[in-house]
Every structure is written in structure tokens, then in C-alpha cells.
Design a protein around this nucleic acid. Sequence first.
RNA 1: UGCCGAGUAGUUGAGUGGUACAACACCGCACUGUUAAUGCGGAUAUCGCAGGUUCGAAUCCUGCCUCGGCAG
Length: 395
Amino acid sequence: MFKILKQSTRSRARIGILKTPHGEIETPCLVPVATSAVVKTLTSEEAAAAKCQALIANTYHLHLQPGEQVIKRAGGLHQFMHWDRPLMTDSGGFQVFSLGFGKEFGINKMARADTRGTSRLVLSLTNAENKSDTLLRVPAGQQPKLLTITDDGVEFRSHRDGAKLFIGPKESMRIQAALDADIIFAFDECPPPHADKEYLEESLRRTHRWAQASLQYHSPRQALFGIVQGGRFQTLRRESARCIAALPFDGIGIGGEFGHQKTHMNKMLNTIIAEVSAQQPRHLLGVGHLEDIPLIIKAGIDTFDCTVPTHYARHGIAFTSHGRLDMAKSRWLRDNKPLDRKCACFVCCDYRRTYLCHLLRAKEITGLKLLTYHNLFFFNTFIEQIKIKIKTGTL
RNA sequence: UGCCGAGUAGUUGAGUGGUACAACACCGCACUGUUAAUGCGGAUAUCGCAGGUUCGAAUCCUGCCUCGGCAG
């Protein structure tokens, strides 16, 4: 299922081929996020044209809307969304965080370093109610207010209508089987970044039990990846990697966050990858800012999904060879140059900054589409260049 | 020409005696397995003009100006 074509001698980076019933993925590869069976603003044809090799959709969201039975009757996700290349589905484990502690505290998955130079953990607070400077803690045993985590799974409340719904490993596997993606993920808990070590230990035990249950309930016609957790603690990451590596998964997923310094993520990845088989594909969940990509590939990551190129595009940010450009800023109205002269995508070939800026400021949805297309093309091209370096032995 | 109504931030409006508020626009920041074309923050007003009453006026009174409606 996974074949390594070239292993770098300078790093853990490798070129591989991940085979699926819907074709091959040449790794390393970004897997753009198509939560609701769509890369927001793009058609599946456009996502393919932007050089996306595979997409990842979401179990929780598709279960809520339109429901997996609708997709099953449509012939599965591939036919439903008219995408004939490889597909993954995430298990709903991330929603345990994002709709639980994430929503409650108004925080993101990632912690970040205090800008005042202390080593104190500071969180990206986005919820006005929690705009205090106090350090948030999640002690062992604490439940998020908005959902309930038990040994068997998670009782969610629908963010759409408040209805209760239960998803555990069994339910996640059943839903993912109906969706019928090529690669699916074990049901896990993505723990909050500010959780105490004791909380993370309990959460990890639960995630490991759910990993075994996911294996038990999964149909072998889909590839199933287990998920390593453990937060910012090296001992927990090592323990988790050993546990997941010992189970008969088709690949290794790596989830959660890794601490509030960028270099810490590298250390955690090295710890994890040292414990898993070189022959298995490794997928890093939810990481992929441009500056992270060379680091994670050198650490030995084969595939990774991230909302950054698509999400930022819809907030007006273009990633270019000149860096991040906020294309909604009025200065671009007077700029007749292409978005990025060095980019070969149709947006950069055929349109100019002034027009992109106008579309964004006028809130025309085509502006979001053009930036989404460009960002994906740019990220994918960036990764192609890294692959060339691996192939030629310079990375 | 008369009568009636209206003039408050760039715009549309709220505010009927204690020197101003919202939305949008503008400017800035954030966003890493998507509840997000989102969230947070900031700047911006001699309250049409001139007088008067009052301790105090966007608010009450007088005159004027501008716009709209109706009448002639």
C-alpha cells in the first residue's frame, strides 16, 4: 500500500507512493481540507487543477449534514462530490476539541509563546468573554461544558440545532464506512493545548482504547490510520507512538499540539517517528503553515492536512513568493502587477492584484475562489520543489 | 410664496435637558485534523448655522440656511 521510492540521507524526508483504490498519492503531500465534501469555493475539478492529489472530508460534519446515508445512496463520497482521486475522512476526533474546550474557551488547537519573552503558555484567545490574561488550566477529569466525554465516546450537541448525538469509535467507523473514503482515521480525542499532564494521561488512555475499538469495527476495504496523541510531553508522545505502532493500522496519524515553541514540534515528531515503522505512511493532522512544511517533511512526515491555504484565502490572505499578502488592503487597488510573477497558476497568469483586491473589498465571492485556487496551487508547487530537493539529494 | 417634515461620524440611522451611540464603510491585528466569505481591536462628530432660556442644550425657544412633501 505504501512504497518508499527514495529515503534522504540528509534527513528523515522520503519520497513515497501511497496506493489507494482511487489512484496513487506521491508523497510528501498536502491533503487540503474538504470538511463538508467540498474545498470551500472550489469545484472538485478546480481542486484537481490546483494540483491537489487528495482531499480530507469530515465524519462529524457529514454525519450532521447531509447524513452518511445520503452519501452512501449517492454512491459514496467520491461520486457524491465528483472527485475521483484519493480521499480521506477525519474521524470526528478533532470536533471533540473544537466543539468542546475549543469553543468553550474560544481557543485554537495551537498554543503560542508569550510575545513578552517569558516561557509562559499563552493561548490564542478569540472569545471576548475569556479575554483575561489568566492562565487557563484543564485539570484531570474536567469535562467541557458543551459536550460529554465518556469511555465509550462523546455525546455532542449539534452546533446546528442543539440535538444530542453520540459518536464513539464504533459510530465513527460505521459513518466512515458509509462515506467510503480510501483512508480513514481512528476516533480519538484531540486534547486542549493547555491541559494538565494528568488530563493528557487520562485522555491518552481513552484514545488508545478507542484506537483498538476502531480497529475492531473497521472494514478492511478502507485503510485505517491510528492517531498518536500525548500533547506537549515527550514521554506521553513516546508511549502513544509505541502503542499505536504496535496495533495493526495501515498508517500512523499524529494529532494534537506539540507545545508552544515551533522547535518543540520537531522534537516531538522525532520522538514519535523513532518509534514507528519506516514502512508505514505517516500523516500529520492539522499542521501546515508554509514555514512548517519543510520542517515536518524533514522530520519524516508523508502526508498532512491543513486548513491554512483555504481558510486564509477566504480571509483575503494570499501566500506568495513575496510572503503573505493581505489582498484586501486598499494599497493593492493601485497595483497592476500579477499576484505572484513566479507562480504559474491561472490566477497569477490571467489576473492582476488590483482586480483581486477589488473583488475582496466588494465582497464578491469570486475573489475568495481565486485566492483559494492560488493558495492551493502555491502550496502544492512549494511541496513539489521540496520533493525535487529530496530526489536530488539536497534535502 | 405658505404649511408640514427632516438636517447627529464617510454613509444610514438611534438618542427629548446632564457635552453623544449603533450598523456599515475605513484602518490594524489574529486565524494550523474548518461551527468561520470569520473573530477581535482602533480612528473618525465644532450634533445645519446664529442667537436665546438654563447651573447645564443634539434635546426647549427664536431667526436663518439646506433638502423633501403638500398647497398655490
